[in-house]
Design a protein around this nucleic acid. Sequence first.
DNA 1: TTGTATGCGTTATCAA
DNA 2: TTGATAACGCATACAA
Lengths: 353, 353
Amino acid sequence: MGTRHAPSISDVARAAGVSMGTVSNVLNGTARVAPATRERVEAAIASLGFVRNGVARSLAAGRSTTLGFVIIDLSNSYFLDIARGAEEAAGTAGLNLLLANSDLSEDKQRTYFDLFVEERVAGILIAANHGSTQDLHHSARGLPVVLVDAPGDHSDICSVVPDNELGGYLAASHVIEQGRTRLLFAGTTELVPVRDRLAGVERAVAEHPGVSLEVERTHDVRVEDGRRVGDEIAARTADLRPDAVVAAADLLALGVLQSVLVGSSLRVPQDLAIIGYDDNRAAWDSTIPLSTVRQPGEEIGREATKLLLEEMNAATSSGHRHRLVTCQPQLIARPSTVGWAARQAITVRSAPG
Amino acid sequence: MGTRHAPSISDVARAAGVSMGTVSNVLNGTARVAPATRERVEAAIASLGFVRNGVARSLAAGRSTTLGFVIIDLSNSYFLDIARGAEEAAGTAGLNLLLANSDLSEDKQRTYFDLFVEERVAGILIAANHGSTQDLHHSARGLPVVLVDAPGDHSDICSVVPDNELGGYLAASHVIEQGRTRLLFAGTTELVPVRDRLAGVERAVAEHPGVSLEVERTHDVRVEDGRRVGDEIAARTADLRPDAVVAAADLLALGVLQSVLVGSSLRVPQDLAIIGYDDNRAAWDSTIPLSTVRQPGEEIGREATKLLLEEMNAATSSGHRHRLVTCQPQLIARPSTVGWAARQAITVRSAPG
DNA sequence: TTGTATGCGTTATCAA
DNA sequence: TTGATAACGCATACAA
């Protein structure tokens, strides 16, 4: 019994003895309202426990104040970083960011994307499987969309990607600078980002005569794949052994590290330097801290949101040109490539937060 | 130029030569509509590229079809598991689940919670810092809310929690069953869940005369805290050394493991068994796989959503009683407590997916 | 500075 | 089975 209705603006107006328009004005600060009136309205709001109905608000105003982000894999800290960056940029613009975890499922990606379109959010960010991103522009039905971590056809969509080629170049250059001359790149060549990283590695090697590169293809880029690579390296005779492993991903590098440490007498980094990729939180706490190339996750998120905002304003302001923005990764040197002496200083520098 | 409006139901109705009500009916299946009419409407929808406006829909229907989940820390795989479970249960009920990452910030928790209330989602799940959950019932203004991973005052709110006492009991019982008699519990007693786990450990020890328990208080439950504990243990003489460490969290256990392996000649598990807590993905790939107590994350998410659904229907159906639901954790035995011989079988059993 | 009135796009009720 | 029309709760343009 007594299931009282949630109070509406008209209830507030009645209680305060003013009109709906005035209540709306104090709520939104759209127009000047006399201090005394404002106080009466605010008192009414407080006493009624009024909370404005965002649904009606969006409908009447014709625009929403929230952004939607369809994320391919929240268990990957890289994507979570992107979400953080996006959230920060959204907050600065007075917008909220809502997340939908598609968990690698193309079905879910579609479902959530369509949901955001239906709900007429102000704009959509999406990090998705390649292939599920083809008709995004079409499905969006005019809503601004920015593709994250995948290059779209920028004739009709904006996208933000990390520079994987540069990352590979940084990783290889780093170990070469440490005096290594026999590099082994480990990773699957099925993945485009990995191929890009390899291209960067090749460029760095090409710039340094006397440095050799061997490529060991793996099935995937997980810890177990790395262990296999490590076992294989440990089994080699010294003259055939690489002196540096550039892994396509941190988990892969972690596997190599573990296998080499446990299954051989090779010392890291003295006998074998190891560098990973991603700065994945899951690989942070290895016995010997792993050097890596840090993905510019937060920057990608911020840039993507900026593009989204720009596109949102395109209708009212000057035209908007879809484009591809590239963000630069950063080398993080840790003991797995630079030797124990430098451990302390570097550990401090690379510590989180 | 030519910035055409997004088509509405009335546009579809006009194109199909029917009324709005009919279009709404084919969209929602609310009423029977003649096959021929339905086809005409569907054709019109397709040709216009109509997508129903969820905002207007929610407003007119007076109810939303999405649930909101305010999550304290998405970088913790436990909470992501909860989100997965919640999403599954929501999907089964035909609802969508949107996530808001509060990143441990009480400000963000409030902000997102209030956002969901404003947006009049169908219900809210929230995993938050203790303390920020006090006036949830009040702020919800009638919306169904379920508190996740924290016990609320269930006179006015439902909540779902893991049974940490049982988890501690399972962990200690397991190592005792493996023949260990000198247990060391490591963890901070600042945290309520950790205190509960310790209580369970104490119960198991009390049930076994001849088994001793030592408690080592740590600052936090991170890897570095564990390393400190490991160093300390390694420095002891054999007669003062525990033969099993029950850690309050996986990262803590990982630190102990690393430190013992690197800084001493102690073998794990032969000389020292180590068990963690959480089944945290971040600790999965240790050199010696860690035994642990798996949090019932997905189950918590499912149960929480069920309670939410029940509360949502409370108005129409029979009354709803707020209550506290407890989910049971599960022991995962891995080589860090059960010896290398058993490794293969157990690794398979505890593999993901 | 404040009040009035219309419309946002849908659902739902009631007639036809 | 279908059509007409009144809400839903708010923003906003315009009038006062």
